[in-house]
Design a protein around this nucleic acid. Sequence first.
DNA 1: ACATAATCGAGACGGTACGTCAGGTCTTTTT
DNA 2: AAAAAGACCTGACGTACCGTCTCGATTATGT
Lengths: 201, 201, 201, 201
Amino acid sequence: MAPNATRRSERSHRAILDAALELVAELGYPKLTIEAIAARAGVGKQTIYRWWPSKAAVLLDAFVALGERAAREAGGEAPYAFPDTGDLEADLKFVLRATVDELRSPTYDVPYRALAAEGIVNPEIAAEFVSRVMEPSLQLYVERLRAAQRAGQVAADLDPRIALELVTGPVTARWLLRTLPLSHRYADAVVEMALRGLSPR
Amino acid sequence: MAPNATRRSERSHRAILDAALELVAELGYPKLTIEAIAARAGVGKQTIYRWWPSKAAVLLDAFVALGERAAREAGGEAPYAFPDTGDLEADLKFVLRATVDELRSPTYDVPYRALAAEGIVNPEIAAEFVSRVMEPSLQLYVERLRAAQRAGQVAADLDPRIALELVTGPVTARWLLRTLPLSHRYADAVVEMALRGLSPR
Amino acid sequence: MAPNATRRSERSHRAILDAALELVAELGYPKLTIEAIAARAGVGKQTIYRWWPSKAAVLLDAFVALGERAAREAGGEAPYAFPDTGDLEADLKFVLRATVDELRSPTYDVPYRALAAEGIVNPEIAAEFVSRVMEPSLQLYVERLRAAQRAGQVAADLDPRIALELVTGPVTARWLLRTLPLSHRYADAVVEMALRGLSPR
Amino acid sequence: MAPNATRRSERSHRAILDAALELVAELGYPKLTIEAIAARAGVGKQTIYRWWPSKAAVLLDAFVALGERAAREAGGEAPYAFPDTGDLEADLKFVLRATVDELRSPTYDVPYRALAAEGIVNPEIAAEFVSRVMEPSLQLYVERLRAAQRAGQVAADLDPRIALELVTGPVTARWLLRTLPLSHRYADAVVEMALRGLSPR
DNA sequence: ACATAATCGAGACGGTACGTCAGGTCTTTTT
DNA sequence: AAAAAGACCTGACGTACCGTCTCGATTATGT
């Protein structure tokens, strides 16, 4: 029943992930089909069904692989580093602007959205998506915020895991629901408000 | 070409919306089909295609109608009022806790998620969803925040349309991506952090 | 469940039967597929599955329709007449030679064989095949033999339903199993032996 | 290319033939698959493809082996003897009744039919089937009929190869096409008619 | 009051993709 | 060298829905 992973064809594996990303970009997620992925990858449908339960699972693997490849190509040493210049506001703005850029780049936007949409409706995919895509970067926020707490730049009694959402939540929500467009200006405004709070000083 | 809305069968219209909500709750959005809606509503498929372009559009109408019905049954006069007790923090917590409750009730959760998921991938639905479902309630935040600014409880130079997202964004993001569970405690923490900011005072 | 036959598309019906006969001639029965029939007929697969349970059933209908068409084109009055010149031996030879010709003509041979083969392994098809294709012609033998009994040319105590098989059985068996080739000479020999018997007179 | 038969595993060979017969009895010929045979025989698929070109070929070998085994178990010396009591009619009835019994026994019926069906549509299998299964027994008829001719019980000018078909053809045809059921009574009637002929004496 | 035209329920149709099965080839490891 | 195991590409299966279309049957005015 369970296939023997040691005999898996690495050639086909790669081709499937590549085809999935290409096709989701060309057609959009709803028109992405397993049949088309198989055809584009030059692979039998069964080879996809043998290793993945759904098109969402394929796309998730493809997206994670894309991230890994990008990381490998970019900085060799510090793949997912969060800057720490000592200036928390500047660091948060830098990262949040980078996030906005990523969310607006077509390479990431389409599969990212697709996986988010699938996850909204499909808890298993959501769990995988969160643990493999979201959490690793969120964890970097936690670490940076803890450093800021140690430096006295963030109130010591705050839960950093919640604090981070004050910064990322607004951007994520805007991006997903398209209530209003994302911009660097918006990222900056969110960081400033989050740090200073709404109440006047 | 364009059907004459005055001749529309109100009976069928209602039956379709009801069937859509029932079925999305029973089967989940991906397994919801126009054919099943038609069968459950005792209606020809064409009657659905005549009035709606997609299952998402049907569900959106059904969901809006559900909201209107609920509002009609609840408070007769002020359907979507935002409390203003003078205590901004209390008012925000009250509303945000209510939002959390709504997002966790199965009646709302399933179709709400479905529409959000569709919107993520389908800009037209997103636009309709935002303008008919999201914006009306967000606008209430804007008004309440403006009142708070007049009362000197919120910094006067802040854009209330962005400020509100500091409060709602984290909740929306958690709900959509299921990073961590929603709770009243979380709602309170978000309001407190948003008002006071992360930096120590 | 059961489709409404009054709404059936006569256009598609014909196209399917025609395509089935064409394709079985081109590819042979084992390579005949419902998918190919649908494609050739310009029809959705479901339209075939709606009206027939299997490719054998399609082919059976197609073959019967072919026979009816041929009969309509040939003699308008007596579609399946058995000659009665008074000379039983001559009449039997005439009919058996015609049978041999038919069995050797590619138009009939391929689908005929296919249906026989399917029937051998599939009793439902066999029953339909026998009642719709075989029995009508065998019944003509019965009538002719009864006439011959009345005329004193065939022993009165013989069961004509069995007697006929003495004539047709050898031809059918040779044709199906391909033990030896069919020919007019063989047809004549069978008729002569059947009438006179193997024992010397 | 051509495998070396001396290194062939007799164990696997037997297991494959046994599995083929078991499975064709359980599932019927159309649902018999090479994969199932391999699984049942505890054998790799390639081991089947190495030695046989098709499932029909496997089944043919299995069926022949079955016959040989039965013959070995039954009479040791004269495996396929045709009785010659001097009474041709009795001898033919005896053999034809035995044939009817065999054709009605499930052990033989299913694979026999399967091979016949395959042969009808596939001339190569037909040729092998005829030469290995049919002809050996038909040859016995030829010899018996020749003896009868020498004894003056059969007209000397008849071709025994055709004469035999007058007896076996009707039975074979009935069996294959299932026009009417086989029985000892039917076998007897056929023998009587074949010997005496249809014409009155 | 009735003719008439649009809507309605029903569902057949040409399609596309589904997820599964098996065919026949190929490769890896074991005997 | 052959065998057991099974991954692979291929192609067909039979099913589910899509969105379009054609049918009477049923409203629901607008003359």
